[in-house]
Design a binder for these strands. Sequence first.
DNA 1: GGCTACTCTCAGGTTCTTCTCAGCCAGTCC
DNA 2: GGACTGGCTGAGAAGAACCTGAGAGTAGCC
Lengths: 236, 236
Amino acid sequence: MSAMAAPQTEARLLVVEDDPNILELLSASLRFAGFDVSTATSGSAAVNAAKDRRPDLVVLDVMLPDLDGFEVIRLMRESGTRTPVVFLTARDATDDKIRGLTLGGDDYVTKPFSLEELTARIRAVLRRTTAGDQSPSRLTFADLELDEETHEVYRAGQRIQLSPTEFKLLRYLMLNANRVLSKAQILDHVWNYDFRGDDNIVESYISYLRRKVDTTQPRLIHTLRGVGYVLRKPAT
Amino acid sequence: MSAMAAPQTEARLLVVEDDPNILELLSASLRFAGFDVSTATSGSAAVNAAKDRRPDLVVLDVMLPDLDGFEVIRLMRESGTRTPVVFLTARDATDDKIRGLTLGGDDYVTKPFSLEELTARIRAVLRRTTAGDQSPSRLTFADLELDEETHEVYRAGQRIQLSPTEFKLLRYLMLNANRVLSKAQILDHVWNYDFRGDDNIVESYISYLRRKVDTTQPRLIHTLRGVGYVLRKPAT
DNA sequence: GGCTACTCTCAGGTTCTTCTCAGCCAGTCC
DNA sequence: GGACTGGCTGAGAAGAACCTGAGAGTAGCC
């Protein structure tokens, strides 16, 4: 699934995270999303890996066993390269240094995050920092349009207001148009990884989405009973 | 984000600062703002770098481990070139030397500063010292006007009084018109880097600004719930 | 020293959002 | 047809995000 928008497909990521569960989750899904992923589990390993691999972007947990994330970045940048970073931080990060993370084209995501949110941020940072606006911030499918930067959604030219979760769900459907997505899959990608509710939440949000963006013909969001959902044009 | 106003885009800066955290903060964000940045961490290194690189402007901490900032400038200028300088000083610097700075076209910013303030000063000094009125001191968006030199703000021709922070916030919004800015981003750019409060201060100042400059139709300051704020004309 | 203007915090109110639950509906299988 | 299963959706509780008034503290100014 998730072949993502093409341009970053070959972007090289370095993921630095000491929790093996989260590291596995991240590297598997980012790889699956089409990124070329390498990993490190400590700050010093990260610095070396960055020298060797010259990644296009680093996903970096600020809490690491040896060096903290800020040290890692400084060491990486001493060699002169200006690699953009997406930081992973705890939600209640009272850490003084958390300020300043959005400078220099970088960004951050607070734990626990959803994979959709992380990949959206990665795409956004790559878009900003890579020369040439190669990848457009606007997704299109049939008469649906979704702007990742301004969070605007249009159906047949009509502006539609979505809540944050509705927006994430629609983006996920659009990035995976014509692909059947199970409720479990959707849950895993759109909701935070610590979400402990059940599948019904997906049904609820599909229902909300239909009411907001799929009231006109042709219908684009289809249910495959017992299998999942798919965004596609009818008569396929 | 922050592609800033175009004109200074190619200006060469030399940033001289011995604190590695602040140096990283500065070089990352100035580079992202479009400047061509090189760095030095000591006075003697700065003198050499200036000879090599011939920067258009120097950002110079007055407190350095070896030479002080004024010495550095004297040595730089012995070779005859008159490079403008923006000094970084401690807030309580009662030093007489600081006083005379604004006479020679130079300027200074007291630590801790905000990035908006520093980049505004850099732009102003470049404007004064570079031949040709390349970058205008007046920002315009819809019927909003903001003069960076006189600190005057007009909405639909009406003069509006803003406090210093309100002014900085509005300038930041105008420099990034049509771009969605998160509260974290705004905090990082408009407030001093040592500010330790929370996001609510941004909400407060947005509220003040709205009351002062956004009481008439069409509304220009928009809230994107869960995302941030954006300055834009409606019906986009 | 006293006044003013400004910055920042806090808390109450409001609106929007998330999530759960339960009942209903629609296919499917016997 | 009847029963079962999966999906849909309205109602509502809990919580999050946002706005704003009030006020404490502070810096700057006369």
